[in-house]
Amino acid sequence: MISFASFPVQPELDTAKHFSAADDAMDLDDEDFEVGGSKVTWPGETITSSQTYMRGHGTYVENEEVIASVAGTIERVNKLVTVRAIRTKYNPEVGDLVVGRITEVQPRRWRVDANSRQDAILMLSSVNLPGGVQRRKLESDELQMRTFFEEGDLLVAEVQAFFGDGTMSLHTRSLRYGKLRNGQLVTIPPILVRRLKSHFTTLPCGVDLILGLNGYIWVSKHVKENEQEGEEGFDAEAVYSNRNDHIDDSTRMAITRVANIIQVLASHWVPLTDALLLEAYEWTIENNTDPKSLLLEDVGDALVATITQN
């Protein structure tokens, strides 16, 4: 039976009032960002009527009502209502920087685990091969794919496109992308990695960071600009090498410290920024905290309390 009553008021959420009030006179400037508030919802919760609003991600329509299907915050852009889940798998978009791990070598392609709902694909044609950028791919390259990447190798790449079934295709056709070494992988929930101007950062403590949008973060020894492999001398030995450089003890400590800080921040659900990391790093140095004790609960709590205050 269809009833024509106005949609149910939910006193604890106040969204109903909110949406109906915003209905007639909409002031876009005020309402673009709904993120700030605490409009939390969960599966099965009615958000609004589907006659006045369009459903977005995290919602579905039943009986002319827009209903949330995930637990998270309600967001609205004009007439589009979405629910952003507080915790999900990584949702790739073209141009995203990701860190991944090779899971399989297949004909002319590698499969890459990128923390997404399906493995990503890296085509042989989307990687830079030794001997210059313009080099043609030969049959012999297909046969020696394992000399470039083999199972278990870590790499940094960019999302290039999507295949018909939604699988993402990666590429490493830039000198900044490619195989990873000299460091450590830290996995955090993808929602905690914000889109930044640059996802390659260098901390003053001699540590390079690659913030993959998929929640994989690579913490490694700093490589000086002039020592990076240049366009001319594209050196296969260095780019596809499986061996670490010499890393001295202080650098190892710094890498561990940064990795542990990231883990502590993630466990307290604090979004990662380089400024925040730097502040946390300085805090640990000031307090003479060794990397190991960072993982203790009280030390982590104290760290997070200090840096989120500012």
Binding site: G36, V40, A71, I86, L192, W269, V270, T308
Partner: peptide
């Protein structure tokens, strides 16, 4: 969910 949203908002946004 409220706690996690709160924690995410507590850092510099």
């Amino acid at each position: 969910t409220g706690r996690l949203v709160g924690a995410m908002g507590s850092g510099p946004r």
